[in-house]
Design a binder for these strands. Structure first.
Lengths: 241, 241
DNA sequence: CGGCAAATTGACTCATGTCAAGCTATGTGG
DNA sequence: CCACATAGCTTGACATGAGTCAATTTGCCG
């Protein structure tokens, strides 16, 4: 891996408390690789070969069944995905593809498992990461089970607004059809949901959304720290691997 | 705790590889307690005080928002719940209540966190448990996003049949309204879903369900190891904490 | 500028939730 | 032991939310 990328990786929560020697060993065996847009990185059912770290760009995690497909999460820098499969040495439960040109760090699964056994700082970091991912997924399930699609969209917009610094204008980080699937609806329905939110001050222009009446929108959305998180960027930087 | 319950606990995946001295320490500080049916054990938003182990009976994990409520999982013996909240020392994201008279082992959260730091066998077990729980939740999300309610019910019945030993008759472990909420539908809809499955050999009599045409049912359900698991009892013994 | 994918819109169908009534099973108290 | 009360379950009629299909329109990339 290029030496100027090292500090970035080194500072990830997952690697921060790792021994220097462990990190060296890992860095020596990992690949930093560039991928164009739309590349399939992993396929559900395949054995877990690498722990993936998104250094640049973004990766969509999705799953299929019986000719249907659904987006499960979008991973943005700097985060990892499919940690659980690597730890358990089990098949992937989700597939992943790049949403744009991206750079990924690929760490061989055996290296992760070995260091996990020998480096206690690392293993604690892994538990912390996993527990966080788990809680993210619980939130996501609550979101799906307890809210209507319009409520989900409203809360998503408010969460994005917070993540992007409470500005009036929010930019959608990915295509609307991906967003639709993430929120558990069809693209057509997402369009209509945006229209429904018009009276609440939601004005869409391409990938830019203006929230002109955040107060009204919040009354509708009723965001909750137990679903939407509190600390900033859940959904963007703490997705769900 | 009573000494004749110890072996049971000791043999849990989570505690099996723990040092004897750690286990002693933990056992000395834990409470084994009996609860009648319908008792609220934990409430979402509360700080994580105890790791809970269901020794006997069953516990429903549920969540609420805006006057709505949804079941998230049912935990049966011998399994733990809210491990993630304990590890991260964060508020519970779900509430829990006993579905029947139950016996629970309560381990103070600080004890778990301390042993997690000092006993590497224990910390590895925790990671394994967490990763398993995480994957269980991913499966559950796929189930919800990719299948219709009838397909979910059909797959649930087949999974139960497998968990209960491939017998023709399957017994529902809890009330139908709880099952309905777990499967992401209303009780009324569950009734209709059962009726819809009639032509596929599903005959309901109270809490007993006969699957007289498992072949046909399987054609409809299209169970997948990447959603329903393979090793027996996911959904019963490997819910999602 | 042209072509293609994404997004929107409309009309329609289907699935699911809601409300209300009735049924059934279970457990309790007389 | 029976009658009643209650909670759970079922059924029907209806409303509504969401998916589907098809036709445009928009916007982007070559």
């Amino acid at each position: 891996m290029r030496s100027d990328d090292m500090p970035l990786i080194r500072d990830l929560p997952l690697f921060r408390s790792m021994d220097d020697s462990s990190f060296e060993e890992m860095a020596g065996l990992a690949y930093l690789q560039r991928f164009p847009q739309g590349v399939d990185l992993i396929t559900e059912g395949d054995p877990a070969d690498f722990l993936h770290v998104v250094v640049d760009g973004s990766v969509e995690l999705f799953a299929g069944w019986n000719d249907r497909e659904a987006s499960m999460a979008v991973v943005v820098p700097v985060n990892t995905f499919i940690l659980a499969a690597v730890i358990r040495d089990s098949p992937y439960l989700m597939s992943g593809r790049t949403l744009e040109a991206s750079r990924l760090l690929l760490i061989p699964a055996e290296v992760v498992r070995k260091l996990f056994r020998t480096d206690s700082g690392f293993s604690r970091a892994i538990v912390d990461e996993l527990a966080g991912c788990y809680r993210g997924l619980v939130r996501e399930s609550k979101n799906l089970k307890l809210r209507s699609s319009i409520e989900r969209l409203a809360n998503y917009l408010l969460a994005q607004q917070r993540a992007q610094g409470e500005r009036e204008h929010v930019t959608l980080r990915y295509e609307k059809r991906v967003l639709a699937s993430l929120l558990g609806m069809t693209p057509e329905n997402l369009s209509r949901a945006f229209a429904t939110l018009g009276p609440y001050g939601v004005e869409v222009d391409g990938r830019t959304v203006r929230l002109s009446k955040p107060r009204d929108l919040r009354v509708l959305a009723k965001p909750s720290p137990l679903i939407d998180g509190r600390g900033g960027d859940w959904g963007a930087n703490r997705p769900d691997h």
